[in-house]
Amino acid sequence: MASSILSEPVCPMSPVQKRIHEAAIRLFAEKNIGEVNVRELAQVAGVARGTIYNNLSSIESLFEDVATHLSGEMNRRVAKSADPEMDPAQRLANGIRFYLRRAHEEPYWGSFIARYAASNAALQEMWNGPPLEDVLSGLKSQRYSFRQEQLPSVISMIGGSVLSAILQVLAGHRTWRDAGSDTAELILIALGVAPEAARAFATKELPALPDAD
């Protein structure tokens, strides 16, 4: 759940580990896990193959490490972005748009998320972070009007909508601003927010996304 990810200690990576992770995101975004090898990873990371062997046990374990890191890192950054007293609908709208803006600014990150988030358990935890907290908060305060038993479907709707919008942005079909605002607006309306209020929440100026640490 959200609390477990957000409370996990952040283990800082060394500069070499960061380079390996960044190279892995790029390669995994373009290829299947089984198609990535140590030689190519070392080349993209700009390190010797021995350095790769010294920093990971297998390509498969590296993939899981990268997925877990991306999920926890994004959750922490989104959680830090909003005042706890902010309207949960505004927090949710901002969170949705943070994903779209980051996918635009970091295409490999966006491609990795879009490619694996529907099937990887670690990446699915992204939706159990701030999105889940904001949905529960909005339901408790009666900002939203869905039934409690519909919560899993609500979270699936949010995750699926964000991933579809990311694909539109990456393909160049829409800008991150338009895709993000429309996605946030339509999700809020689906949750019971009045259309005029949903539009206002979805188009309010988006703040900077804080660092994870």
Rank of each mutant, 00 (worst) to 15 (best):
I59N: 01
E35V: 02
E125V: 05
D83M: 12
I187N: 04
N54C: 04
A79V: 08
D65S: 13
E196C: 06
A208T: 13
I187P: 00
D134R: 09
G160K: 03
F28D: 06
N32D: 14
N37S: 08
K80N: 07
Y99H: 11
V154E: 00
S181Y: 09
D65E: 12
K204P: 06
E8T: 14
V16I: 13
V66N: 02
A212F: 09
W176Y: 10
A202I: 12
S111I: 08
R143D: 04
S161E: 08
S161G: 14
S81W: 10
G34N: 11
A121C: 12
L191V: 02
M86W: 06
A93G: 03
V66K: 06
W127E: 07
H173M: 13
S141Y: 03
A179V: 03
I166Q: 03
F28G: 08
A165H: 09
A171L: 14
R101M: 10
L151V: 00
F63D: 07
L56Y: 14
N75V: 05
E133P: 00
S58Y: 09
L188H: 05
V38W: 07
A89G: 10
E35H: 07
E133C: 00
N75E: 03
I25D: 04
F98L: 05
A184N: 08
D83V: 04
I20F: 05
A114D: 13
S141E: 15
E205K: 12
D182H: 11
A42H: 13
L56V: 08
E205R: 14
V16S: 04
T203M: 10
A122H: 15
A200Q: 15
I59V: 14
G110S: 05
L6R: 12
V169R: 07
A23T: 07
L92E: 00
L186H: 14
R77T: 03
S153Y: 01
G46M: 02
Q124A: 09
A114I: 10
P130I: 03
Q90D: 01
L139W: 14
S14M: 06
D134K: 04
H104M: 11
N120L: 09
V36N: 02
E185A: 11
M157K: 01
Q148H: 06
A67N: 10
Q90P: 00
F201H: 15
F112V: 08
K18H: 11
P131M: 00
E35W: 08
P9H: 08
I155W: 01
E185P: 07
I189A: 05
P130R: 04
L70E: 14
P107I: 11
I113Y: 12
S58W: 07
L151I: 00
G138A: 05
L188Y: 04
E60M: 07
Q124P: 07
I158Q: 01
L62E: 10
R174G: 02
Y53F: 11
G160W: 02
A118F: 12
L167Q: 15
P152Q: 03
A45C: 05
L188R: 01
E133Q: 13
Q124V: 07
N32W: 11
G72Q: 12
F112K: 12
R115S: 11
V44A: 02
N120G: 09
Q142Y: 06
A171E: 15
K80L: 09
A121H: 14
R147P: 01
A198G: 10
N94S: 04
S137P: 02
N37P: 08
V38D: 06
P88V: 01
Y99G: 00
S61P: 06
D178T: 13
L186D: 12
R39T: 15
V36R: 04
